[in-house]
Design a protein around this nucleic acid. Sequence first.
DNA 1: ATAATTATACCGTCCGGACGGTATAGTTAT
DNA 2: ATAACTATACCGTCCGGACGGTATAATTAT
Lengths: 175, 175
Amino acid sequence: MRSSKKAALLEAAGAIVVGGGIDALTFDRLAAETGVSKGGILYHFPDKERLLIALVEGIVSLVDLAIAQERASNAEPDGPGRWLRAYIRIAFTDGGDVDRLLGILLAGLPPESPALVPLLSADRRWLEAACSDGLPRGLAIAIRLAVDGAFVTKLDPADVAAAREALLTLTETAQ
Amino acid sequence: MRSSKKAALLEAAGAIVVGGGIDALTFDRLAAETGVSKGGILYHFPDKERLLIALVEGIVSLVDLAIAQERASNAEPDGPGRWLRAYIRIAFTDGGDVDRLLGILLAGLPPESPALVPLLSADRRWLEAACSDGLPRGLAIAIRLAVDGAFVTKLDPADVAAAREALLTLTETAQ
DNA sequence: ATAATTATACCGTCCGGACGGTATAGTTAT
DNA sequence: ATAACTATACCGTCCGGACGGTATAATTAT
């Protein structure tokens, strides 16, 4: 059986980072938590940098996938704010900690880390998408900032829902 | 207490964190960067936890001070959105990296770190202030989220300015 | 058909270095 | 005299990473 444990390792790595910050992600801990030996981990990710890069790339494509799915599944016609509404919905609705992980990585990765490259590139892509959504640029940026802020701050569910509604309203009323 | 280097140490610690993430902050590095000996550092901060706590508390009181100063220096009368406008102005105008440091600490500190306690407490205080500002709660939360998001994301100056204006407008038009 | 070889997917151990922290003796300024 | 250091040496732990080995599936050679 060509059973690769790469995906499981990445998933566990994400959970470790969400639960304990970036420093908490060590080979030993990852090995202990997955049952994969340290050697096995290093087979898939030759050094820590590669592990971080793979983690980032996985998260980015997960978010991209979620956006695409949200846009495909709703019947909303094209129009101002459509992309932002999808972005808001996936960010606030998502049960997993994908978004928090993204925030932790964006804020906590050392500025020179090569793992930041794909993250920042995705960030620019999403910013451009937000700004090409038919809303005033400043408002689009502000809304996206708010969504990013939600990745970091811990709010109680009622406040999260209130912010979500307020943001969705902003994409509709303003032009 | 004529020549306490405590403040200088804290300032340098903040710069190190901003420049290289939380992991970059080590006693040896801090010593090298300030010229203070390791023993000297440990005289002021008996362990790393205390250093982090002092750093967080310093940042929080800096932000509190900035808010108070902004509110004192502008002639704006009390009314809906006044607190939020002050918060937006200091967050976006500030030349130093205080806000970025705050974001890094909030996102990057391990969830169990005692240094998070004063930070989260200040966070709740600021949230309450934002929500008691005369604006709809959801909108107030969303605006604050956007400001927090600005701590993390790196935007070019024009976009920052655009977001700032959009947010200020939101505090005025909506009720 | 089968033997030899190669590639893949790991395991387990070890090492050097960095880091947090302790200790201690001496120094300077107030 | 005391606070605020300097300077240096040291210790235990953890971490990243190197390394050698193992088991098995796929490929190739004969």
